[in-house]
Nucleic acid binder design. Structure first.
Length: 104
DNA sequence: CAGGGGGCTAAGG
DNA sequence: GCCTTAGCCCCCT
């Protein structure tokens, strides 16, 4: 389990990512005030319920790819949600230009 | 304490 | 592009 504070700060940052844009796990952690906690961000998102309104799918790895095996159910689910918002994939990678850069 | 493993990352071959 | 190494932090065995 992760601290309540970390969880809440993470949710806040994730919720701030606009549709059609994505953000890396490490970047979310940093924005939440927990630099270095990228893996914990993943843990928080994994614990999200199915019906959540939080845009967990907008969080991807720093390489622009999804952190699931290509073709897996989880991979497909996340990719469909992103493409539905207009996010494009090139060779299973999301272009850097689609990364959300919050100006602090 | 030692090991292993996660929706991670950056750097080097 | 791949794989390995190292670093990161938390959790479980």
């Amino acid at each position: 389990m992760v601290s309540q504070e970390f969880t809440e700060k993470t949710w806040a940052v994730v919720a701030s990512v606009p549709s059609g844009r994505v953000m890396a796990y490490g970047q979310v952690a940093k924005m939440a005030g927990f630099a270095g906690y990228a893996r914990q961000v993943g843990a928080v998102l994994k614990a999200m319920p199915e019906q959540t309104t939080l845009p967990w799918h907008r969080i991807v790895n720093a390489s622009g790819g999804l952190s699931f095996p290509v073709g897996s159910e989880a991979y497909t689910r996340q990719r469909e949600r992103l493409e539905r918002e207009g996010v494009i994939f090139s060779a299973n990678k999301i272009p850097k230009s689609l990364f959300w850069q919050p100006l602090f």
